[in-house]
Amino acid sequence: MDRFSFSRSIRYALLPAAMMVSGCGSSSAPTAETPEVSTDAADEVETTPLDVMEETSAGESSGPNLETPSGFKLPEGDLPEAPATKSGPSKGEFNLPDDLDVGTSSKPPEVSGDMSIDLVASSKDVSVDYAAWEKVRQTAAQSGKVTVLDVWSLACGPCLKEFPNLVAMQKRFGDKVVAIGANVDFDGRKSRPPESYEPKVTEFLSSVEAEFDNFIVQTPSDEVFEAIGIGSIPAVLVFGADGQLAKQFSDVGETAGFTYEADIVPLVEKLLN
């Protein structure tokens, strides 16, 4: 064997050992077997979970849009906040049900059995009756006490101005004096019967706390004026305890411009004495 062939043989013999020392190439030493990973598992490992997305103090995502395994991309910017959960009522409080209809209707609730609701205008002591004029006048004359009968209308400004003084007078004298209100808005038209005036009449009477006998006269107003002997209202009739008409006040003649303070109250005091 010549020197060249010998050197080449030695070099080839030492080559595998040198490769093992330097780490290059393949090693013949046994190594741990790497497990195979399925395509589906690899996708799950590489996908970024939703719950690890970082948010800045302003609530915005600091990274790119996330993509779920199904391919759905989350929108950029703020994520919608979860709706706040309702807590139960605390001690001493009561939460109305969400489906409760709280309306503004004044219609009273329906009741059953022996239960009932007494509705009279907006004040429990204000009521209105219906009667012909002669019946109203007879009621005033037969009270057995000094009685003041006020004839008024919703369309009469002076009537509405003085009527609260009738209330004040009755409260001043108490049971010694009987106060009666007689509304004469009904003018005889069939399209506007006496009952049609009741809502406004009771509203006014309640507003002034007229807690005494009140009537809506069923006789047409022109016939009432003729029976009293006046051409217009306001008009007030004062009866003594004996049932006789002591004096009649109207807005014409010597009693024009009368008031409770200046004219009617002094007469009532005189009759009481």
Rank of each mutant, 00 (worst) to 15 (best):
A140R: 04
L15F: 14
N273M: 06
D101F: 04
E110D: 08
V224L: 02
S28E: 14
V37G: 00
C159D: 00
G188P: 02
D78F: 12
A141S: 15
A256T: 06
D242R: 05
K200Q: 11
V111C: 03
L149I: 07
Q248N: 01
A121W: 09
G103K: 00
S123W: 03
F163M: 15
E195C: 00
A168K: 15
E209D: 13
D263M: 06
G59C: 12
G88A: 15
E198P: 03
G25L: 07
S106C: 05
S122K: 11
P164D: 05
P30Y: 09
D242M: 02
A84D: 13
V136N: 00
V217Q: 00
A42F: 14
V146D: 07
V177Q: 07
F212M: 08
N183F: 00
G181R: 05
A235H: 08
M1R: 10
N214M: 07
G113R: 01
R189T: 12
T31G: 13
S250V: 07
A179V: 02
S28Y: 14
D51S: 11
C159N: 04
D242E: 01
A155P: 01
G77E: 11
K190C: 00
D43C: 03
V178T: 15
P164Q: 06
R11M: 12
K91I: 13
C159H: 01
D175R: 09
V45R: 04
T56M: 06
D175S: 15
Q248Y: 02
A82Y: 12
F163N: 02
S153R: 01
S90A: 13
G174P: 04
S22Q: 06
A58L: 12
V238A: 02
L15E: 12
V148K: 04
A18K: 09
S5E: 13
A182N: 06
M20N: 13
G71A: 10
A168S: 15
S106G: 09
V184F: 01
M115I: 12
V184N: 04
L166V: 07
Y197S: 03
G157H: 09
L245F: 03
V151L: 13
L15M: 13
P97F: 08
D40K: 08
Q142I: 00
W152D: 05
S196E: 00
A131C: 09
E60N: 14
S206H: 05
V151G: 05
Q170C: 08
S22D: 15
V146Y: 05
G257D: 08
V111M: 05
I233G: 04
A42R: 14
P69Q: 06
G231T: 13
L160E: 06
P75D: 12
P164H: 07
E54T: 15
P16C: 00
C156R: 03
P16E: 03
P194H: 01
S5D: 10
W152Q: 02
